[in-house]
Design a binder for these strands. Structure first.
Lengths: 156, 156
DNA sequence: CTTGAAAAACATGCCGC
DNA sequence: GCGGCATGTTTTTCAAG
């Protein structure tokens, strides 16, 4: 385990491609599809859950069906780069469920947030709360008109 | 079913909160936790899978463990707004597995892409392929230094 | 909506290769 | 490491309150 990522081999990749699509198929179907025995597939799945390759198995919901109709992308620049500010920012991200994704970036934009809310009014409320919690130098919010792709299946 | 989203009630929401976390717990544990019978939980899950509230149940992988070490956000502006260009762009998005998310935006930026690749070199190759496939007026790519949050669990 | 029970499908662990 | 088989668990279906 000294190099980049030699934890998984081609059989593992085949299994991952299957379980990324659907976890509700039986072991037997997966085993047949990838050309290994049930036991082997089971052992490999066990290992990949242990070592964190598979983070978890979960139901993936349609945001619209549960009332989250709008997605915004929020680009943030800050003037404060001290530890106290970052702690406050991290806490806000953690505690606000509307923020479904947050990245610290290299470049002119310091942070990007993906925010999923019920409505544009709900976003306005979210926005006010956010800027009241942390000092922000410059913000630019973009409303998504259309989600063209959302691949939870990674290229494995 | 004439209003916004009255397909799901509070019991459904409780069930969804459970299965969003982990799909591998038995029906019995979920039923106990939400205070309903096994049969009821099963019937409700069945309905929510039928009507698309639950898109699917799948394994969620750690991108780094499968060698996808870098995430980029690509902001795109285009000068061509005709149907032919859009078709080509849609096809490119569909066919390039490195693009894990794509949105059409309102505002100065026309599109935003999330791109997950093995390395910065792999991103360079991806980028060249993308711009060779579709005419783009202005692109700005930002490398993510840190994924601060990635909530696949939606606020339900 | 619930309980309960019965059938089928399944995951899991052990065996020998 | 692998595959086949035995066992206990779980899902799934059904009848009845």
């Amino acid at each position: 385990m000294s190099r980049g990522t030699p934890d998984i081999d081609d059989d593992d990749r085949k299994i991952l491609r299957e379980v990324q699509k659907d976890t509700n198929r039986s072991l037997e179907r997966i085993a047949t599809k990838v050309g290994l025995s049930k036991t082997t597939v089971w052992n490999r799945l066990q290992r990949m859950m242990q070592n964190g390759t598979i983070l978890r198995q979960a139901a993936i919901l349609d945001p619209r069906k549960i009332g989250l109709r709008e997605t915004f992308f929020v680009s943030i620049r800050t003037s404060a780069h001290d530890a106290a500010w970052l702690d406050a920012f991290r806490a806000a991200i953690e505690e606000m469920p509307e923020i479904t994704e947050a990245h610290r970036l290299a470049g002119t934009t310091d942070y990007i947030l993906k925010v999923q809310v019920e409505s544009t009014e709900a976003f306005d409320a979210f926005y006010k709360t956010l800027v009241s919690r942390v000092a922000i130098y410059d913000v630019s919010s973009s409303l998504s008109m259309e989600e063209m792709k959302h691949a939870l299946e990674l290229k494995v």
